[in-house]
Design a protein around this nucleic acid. Structure first.
Lengths: 110, 110
DNA sequence: GTCTAATATAAGCCATAGCTTATATCTGGA
DNA sequence: TCCAGATATAAGCTATGGCTTATATTAGAC
């Protein structure tokens, strides 16, 4: 599953935003999402599953609770893809700045 | 239409990659995409329409030809969204480097 | 003016993503 | 041990995105 397939859903993006501010247990995520999207507990749980299985979130089991944390590693795939377009909106970066902006990552195959 | 809705499709991403290397006329894009995806001229044209209408591509009319160019402006929306997660995979950037990485853009509402 | 090339659009089909309701699986407490 | 809370899963429905074929539109060549 491609990173974009995960991030295309607004509920999943919102969950990731919540997790970016710190870990949350499932029930808390359900509460917060429901105030914004009016979907069921089941629907949120299914989104959490997608995030888990795609590597965007990790879970710690705490008894009956599940504590979710973000794992941003797969977002790098998106960021790397965007890199090839970065010069279009940041045309004035020096070569050095560009290296910094690219996080000094290894260049990979296109 | 959200930027992610446009970028989620692999054919559209590939078209944007082609356009990142320089403008192309519609027919050329159709040829190149067809070697990789085996879809019809119509299908490619429909993808080009999505790219046009969402602002990711611009067109110059040249007689019966349409010359497509990339417009990366809407990608900034994606890049900005990713920014909040950047610290997770680039934890060692200094505050200054972070500013550079963010392109010194104005901070906008989250 | 007619033909053909280049591109776009219309209409309809189908697979699937995201939802719902119902139910299963754990866990800790009384 | 039984129950309630917390979470996940199963099954089924529906809307929609991306495709196809067929056709429209436009421009230049002759």
């Amino acid at each position: 599953m491609h990173a974009f397939d995960v991030l295309v859903d607004p509920v999943r993006r919102r969950i990731l935003e919540l997790l970016a501010d710190g870990e949350h247990r499932s029930g808390r995520i359900v509460e917060l999402i429901q105030t914004e999207f009016s979907i069921s507990q089941s629907a949120v749980s299914q989104h959490l599953r997608v995030l888990r299985e795609s590597g965007f979130a990790t879970v710690q089991v705490d008894g009956a609770r599940r504590i979710y944390s973000v794992d941003a590693a797969p977002m790098r795939e998106v960021s790397d893809w965007l890199d090839r377009f970065r010069s279009f909106w940041e045309p004035k970066l020096s070569a050095l700045d560009t290296e910094i902006a690219r996080g000094k990552k290894d260049r990979r195959e296109d």
